[in-house]
Each structure stands twice: as C-alpha cells, then as structure tokens.
C-alpha cells in the first residue's frame, strides 16, 4: 500500500532496498548448508536457489543488479560465498565461471517473468521453470568454461563431466519456482511498474 514517491532516475528507494536485501538473501542462501555434507568436495548450499529466486521475484534488471551486488560484496571481503569465503579468492578459483554466470542466470529468469507479465499472465511456477531451464543451461556452460580454463581440460569434456551437478540445480530451480510464485501472490505489485 505504501508507495515511494521519490522515483527520479529509474529506481525508487524500494527498488534499491529490494536489490540490496536480495543481495543479502543470496549471501545467506550461500552460507547456509542445504545438506550437512558436500558432493565431490563442493558444499551443497542454496546459493543457486537464491539466484533463481532473485530473478524470478525482482525481474531482469533488479534481479541482475541484486546478484551482481552480491558478487561485489563478496569481492571486497565479506564471506558470502559457499564455504563461507569472501574476497577475491573465489574469483581466482576453478568455480569462478559459476560466479560470473549467476547475474546472467538471474537476468534470464527475470526476462521470462517479465515477458509473462507483459503478456498479461500471472507469474506461475511454470513460467519461472521455463526461464530457469534456460538459466540453468547458461550456468552450466559458463561454469564449465571456468573449470576448463582453470584446470586445462578440453571444454566439451568438462561440460559432460559437470552434468553431474545439473540434477541438484534443477531441484533448487523447482524450489525457487514454487517459492517465487507464492511471493508474487503475496506481493502482486512487485513487477507492476515494469
């Protein structure tokens, strides 16, 4: 019911707050363990759930900004990456490709949600799933690129090898889709202006 009447240049203070708070949400999702053990030494967190959710709830622009801000906050040393680790180390490690792909994933999911809204559709679980599947492909391919560069292995082989992560990612995507649809039912105005 409250409106911020202070829109001057694009984003209102509510938009800024949504971007900042969702950057924090992705951070929290990244450091809480979804499972108490890791898979192949990689801890299983809700990080990707947070990334999908940011795009699905905020749309492409704010979703992209929120995830990019999350990366920037981590880069200056706040431990917000899986581990939890902060600073530039994660950007120098083999998983850097995944980090770089995250804002793009949020963007892709957000675009799907925005297209649905523009077509007069409600943001349903199915809508988020469609965008999320494309996002997951982006995450997979860009992530594999990072690993291939770091460990000096052929790209195609890396893509095939990293397919093992896809099922777990899809579980997080389904979760994010269900949750995002509920959020849009609770806050129908979230994407109203765009």
């Amino acid at each position: 019911m409250s409106s911020t009447t202070t829109a001057r240049r694009g984003l209102t203070t509510t938009d800024l707050a949504l971007v900042a708070v969702f950057a924090a949400l992705v951070a929290v999702c990244s450091v809480v363990a979804a499972l108490p053990f890791g898979v192949n030494g990689v801890p299983v967190t809700l990080q990707l759930f947070g990334v999908f959710l940011a795009g699905a709830v905020l749309g492409p622009v704010r979703g992209f900004l929120a995830v990019a801000l999350y990366l920037a906050v981590g880069a200056v040393g706040v431990p917000v990456f899986a581990g939890p680790v902060g600073g530039l180390a994660p950007f120098a490690g083999p998983t850097a490709g995944y980090l770089v792909s995250f804002p793009l994933v949020a963007l892709v999911v957000g675009l799907a949600v925005q297209r649905a809204r523009a077509a007069g559709l409600a943001v349903t679980t199915a809508v988020v799933l469609v965008g999320g599947l494309v996002g997951e492909v982006v995450c997979w391919l860009v992530g594999a690129l990072g690993i291939a560069l770091y460990s000096d292995t052929p790209y195609l082989a890396t893509v095939k090898a990293t397919a093992v992560y896809v099922p777990a990612d899809l579980v997080k995507l389904v979760l994010a889709a269900v949750v995002a649809a509920a959020v849009h039912r609770a806050f129908p105005q979230l994407l109203a202006r765009r």
Binding site: S2, T4, T5, T6, T12, T13, T14, D15, L16, A17, L18, A20, V21, F22, L25, L46, F49, L53, V57, L175, V178, V179, A180, A182, V183, A186, F187, L190
Partner: peptide, 21 residues
C-alpha cells in the same frame, strides 16, 4: 521454510525502502 523466508524478506525490503525515502 523458504516460502515464508522469501515473503518476509520482500516485506522487510519494502520497509527499508520506506525508511530510505
């Protein structure tokens, strides 16, 4: 867990947006 978490996070962001304004 995650649905109320996300909903409350969005509500918090709206409160923060109001406070900033």
């Amino acid at each position: 867990t995650l649905t109320p978490f996300a909903v409350r996070t969005v509500a918090h962001a709206h409160a923060v947006g109001d406070a900033l304004a």
